[in-house]
Design a protein around this nucleic acid. Structure first.
Length: 466
RNA sequence: UCCGGCGUGGCACAAUUGGUAGCGCAAACGGCUGUUAACCGUUAGGUUACAGGUUCGAGUCCUGUCGCCGGAGCCA
């Protein structure tokens, strides 16, 4: 007899009709026995949020022993006919003719129960939490967002660029780096009391990248428009619901874009991604709206339907000063916008995404383009309600002399960045880009409160298990 | 890193002013039902994070350590 191919539960539920000889493989969520002579089995295969209800008739050979093994977490192979369900709660169900248990899950020891668990507990069993409704939904949405990112850029002729993960570029102005070395830490070679990196694997001090931007610029200034999408690393001792030591970042870089073009793209980008999830992850999004954040669907619709507010940094300062609110951190021109300020702008003043641009030169990195006023740079941040900063970007400095000056002011050695300066020596062009924290995007779209619950295996200070 | 909060059966929680550690869910066993976060009954399960201290007596008070959570800073 020919092997019957496995069908995904998602497809079966969408088909909605009766079908013969169906094979379903998945994990048991719960079982309810009926003395009427059968058991109800809830099976999930990860293809969608919903379970498939399977009916195990007591006449099935070995019924007693089999049902005993069908506990939460066990894995099964089911063959049978898909029929219309006589009861409420599901349109179709599987009448099982053959059943095989691939793997049992001892109910005395299996940590997942058919009840709600705290996310804190689930983080301790990160290898099993994908079997929960919430993590399944998060990962399906995360996957959809990742795909939508590639779709968005490829539809616009952007090239997906793979920038290096190991880099010798120090101090890119974006936080502490993890060091990469093959030196024996118990016997570090020294020269004049300092570590001799010439004996290290790369013959230089290297670390994990904090951003692919500088490398991205080199390819944008040859191929026009590129984007990176990969892991980045920050060795900051940040312990918040919005920070990870290892996270994924999307960084488009575009030749011939000025700051306005950059902001246009950022707004279009976020709207595209949100719309894509609303259109394609309806079940999972309904779940988030019901169980995680009852305002999430309204929030996302609001994003898609309204234009982002754009205001000068100087205007943002004025607005904050006139707000009548007392902030923990004083507001004056030249200060960094603190979380409380960003929250006021996005949540109270405008109640929608806000793009603040033209920040003071003094509080931004060397590569951002200096404005004619010499006091501000063409930097922009996209601030979202609840989440805060999700995008940081800028038009890049394309003038050789100004760039060298700003490097010196910021304590960055121009010698070390000779290759970056070459982009301004030879065929320089106006160009812009931005960076988007992928996990923060997933967080925002799902309404999940903690960033550790939107990445499969979160890396945070003192936590690299699994 | 700083500030604040919290660590009690597998999970989620309770325990008056310091005075016999309880409940629900899960589990095991039984009952019942086209059930659906099923329901009903019975049973078992705890060195109250760890180490000290105060006290006749500590889950509760004090000190330290570890862990977790929330907020802040850094940022994406």
């Amino acid at each position: 007899m020919a092997k019957i191919k496995r069908q995904k539960i998602k497809a079966l539920l969408e088909s909605g009709g009766a079908m013969e000889n169906i094979r379903v493989q998945g994990w048991v969520r719960t079982r309810r026995d009926s003395k009427g002579g059968f058991s109800f089995l809830e099976v999930n295969d990860g293809s969608c949020l919903k379970n498939l209800q399977a009916i195990i008739d007591a006449n099935l050979p070995g019924y007693e022993e089999l049902t005993h093994q069908l506990t939460a977490g066990s894995c099964v192979d089911l063959l049978g006919n898909l029929v219309e369900s006589p009861a409420k709660g599901q349109s179709v169900e599987l009448q099982v003719a053959e059943l095989k248990v691939y793997g049992t899950a001892d109910p005395e020891k299996y940590p997942l129960q058919k009840k709600r668990h705290s996310f804190e507990f689930l983080r301790e069993i990160a290898h099993l939490r994908p079997r929960t409704n919430t993590m399944g939904a998060v990962m399906r949405v995360r996957n959809r967002l990742a795909w939508a990112i590639h779709k968005f850029f490829n539809e616009r002729g952007f090239l997906y660029l793979h920038t290096p993960i190991i880099t010798a570029s120090d101090c890119e102005g974006a936080g502490e780096m993890f060091q990469v070395t093959t030196l024996d830490l118990d016997k570090v070679p020294k020269v004049d009391g300092k570590t001799d990196f010439s004996q290290d694997f790369f013959g230089d001090k290297t670390g994990l990248t904090v951003s692919g931007q500088l490398e991205g610029e080199t390819y944008a200034l040859a191929l026009g428009e590129i984007y990176t999408f990969g892991p980045t690393f920050r060795a900051e001792n940040s312990n918040t619901s919005r920070h990870l030591a290892e996270f994924w970042m999307v960084e488009p870089e575009m030749a011939f874009y000025d700051l306005d073009d950059d902001m246009d793209l950022a707004e279009e980008f976020i709207k595209y991604l949100v719309r894509d999830v609303l259109d394609n992850c309806a079940d999972d999004m309904a779940f988030f709206n019901q169980r995680i954040d009852s305002t999430i669907l309204d929030t996302l619709k609001n994003i898609v339907e309204n234009s982002f507010e754009r205001l000068h940094y100087a205007d943002a300062i004025h607005l904050l000063q006139k707000s009548g609110k007392t902030f923990q951190y004083a507001v004056e021109w030249g200060c960094n916008l603190q979380a409380e300020h960003e929250r006021y702008l996005a949540e109270e003043a405008f109640k929608k995404p806000v793009m603040v641009y033209n920040y003071p030169e003094a509080i931004k990195p060397f590569y951002m383009k200096l404005n004619e006023d010499k006091e501000t740079v063409r930097a922009m941040d996209v601030l979202l309600p609840k989440l805060g900063e999700i995008i940081g970007g800028s038009q890049r400095e394309d003038d050789f002399e100004i760039l060298v000056d700003r490097m010196k002011i910021k304590g960055v050695d121009p010698e070390e960045y000779w290759w970056y300066l070459d982009l301004r020596r030879y065929g320089s062009a106006p160009h812009s880009g931005f960076g988007l924290g992928f996990e923060r995007l997933v967080q925002f779209v799902t309404g999940m409160e903690n960033i550790r619950d939107v990445i499969p295996f979160p890396r945070t200070p003192k936590h690299a298990r699994f």
